[in-house]
Design a protein around this nucleic acid. Structure first.
Lengths: 228, 228
DNA sequence: TAGCGTAGAATTGGATCCAATCAACGAACG
DNA sequence: CGTTCGTTGATTGGATCCAATTCTACGCTA
């Protein structure tokens, strides 16, 4: 195969309204779940060929992905999938540590029984999900389910975007520590505190949750970088 | 004149590397300082003519601005400058309330005497600046000067972006309350607390600062919306 | 006269073509 | 033999052209 781009081979089923949306969504998903690794250069012509479109929708999609910090654009040089690194992970966790407690605090008083049920279902799904790539999405949806009633659309959009970036690191979590270390206990504790409307406890669990993940990833990178 | 777009008439002096960058930077500045009002539709052809380029760099610039939530894109309909509203303002303040204390906390221990001097200079500049449009930029730079040593590039980038969005509302501040209400006292108190390395006090002042601004804008919109 | 349908204009989405820039290779010169 | 400069190929940036979609306005009909 010429490159990992081939893995994006398209099932025309999930077409979007415009080619640009289609390319953007597919590239984004592939970057987040690790099929397109950090550092990979994306040739416009090549991507266009894989998707069966011209270079133009590819260029527009890339511009949007660049604004989301998933691609690095260098004028006249091209686009490269943003590298993951210890620094980037630390950034991501620092941002989530700030945003998610705010969203959770606003949301908890307004959560409904349905919301709790949905969140519980997602925990169960994560336990039984075999496909590693889908675990990240389930994790994201669980978190967002608890923030959903915050009533601040842009705050939530930002939080979701950062959770998506975190997905890129979740894979290393799973690889390094195995499935059982998916912090399902913390998820359950978070849900329980939310159901009790105990905002302080829920925020404490969430901070612990994020900090633990940050420490795990930091250790992973320390080990990897020492071994070369 | 055909539209407020004309106000973007270009001095070829500050050209950028690529036409796309040039268009993006100019449009962004115009949206932030209010020259392009919320709700204004941007015809690609028209914008291209104003800038003396073809539609293509305009389209790419618009894609990036959309990803920054400064434009709303509707397929086959076009781009519209994102409306400002009480809800959007509340969102913005909720986000800043989460991000900026985090950045400030990380930064304070590492700030240098130079940083404090720079921040002080910016306060003085704001006092003497006549041009209303530039006040927003000075305010942004003052805040960022205090966060600069946080050592988290993406956290800072997000904070700066949200400060830029806040600029759109600063104009209403100035219009409604006059220049003297620019919270310069709070700026000075914030700087003083930072110089004492008193993180708790600095965060408290910052939260107060943001909450006051949020309340002022909320009151402004309440009054405006009741009057029609 | 009100409402619906259709035809045309306006505008955006996408494809193709040309120009500008960059990287790599090689030759000439010190 | 090493360095530097020029040339060539690859790739992106920008312009122009065509297709698809949406909106508008006019006319037809009930």
């Amino acid at each position: 195969m010429t490159s990992s781009l081939e893995s994006l081979a398209v099932d025309g089923a999930l077409r979007h309204r415009t080619a640009t949306e289609f390319v953007e969504a597919t590239l984004k998903a592939a970057i987040l779940d690790g099929r397109l690794a950090g550092g990979l250069p994306l040739r416009q012509e090549e991507v266009a060929a894989v998707f069966g479109v011209s270079r133009m929708p590819v260029r527009e999609a890339m511009r949007r992905l660049e604004a989301q910090a998933l691609l690095d654009f260098v004028p006249h040089k091209g686009a490269v999938v943003t590298e993951i690194s210890a620094e980037d992970a630390a950034d991501n966790y620092a941002i989530r540590r700030a945003l998610e407690p705010a969203a959770l605090t606003l949301s908890i008083p307004k959560l409904t029984a349905d919301d709790f049920a949905r969140a519980g279902d997602l925990i169960a799904e994560m336990d039984s999900e075999a496909d590693e790539g889908r675990v990240g999405e389930l994790n994201r949806r669980f978190h967002m389910a608890l923030y959903a009633r915050a009533g601040r659309a842009k705050l939530l959009a930002l939080a979701e975007q950062q959770l998506a970036v975190a997905d890129r690191y979740l894979r290393f979590h799973l690889a390094a520590k195995g499935r059982e270390h998916l912090s399902q206990d913390e998820h359950r504790a978070l849900l329980a505190a939310a159901e009790r409307r105990d905002t302080d406890a829920a925020v404490a669990v969430l901070l612990e949750h994020v900090d633990t993940a940050a420490a795990t990833i930091a250790a992973f990178f320390r080990e990897r970088d020492s071994g070369r």
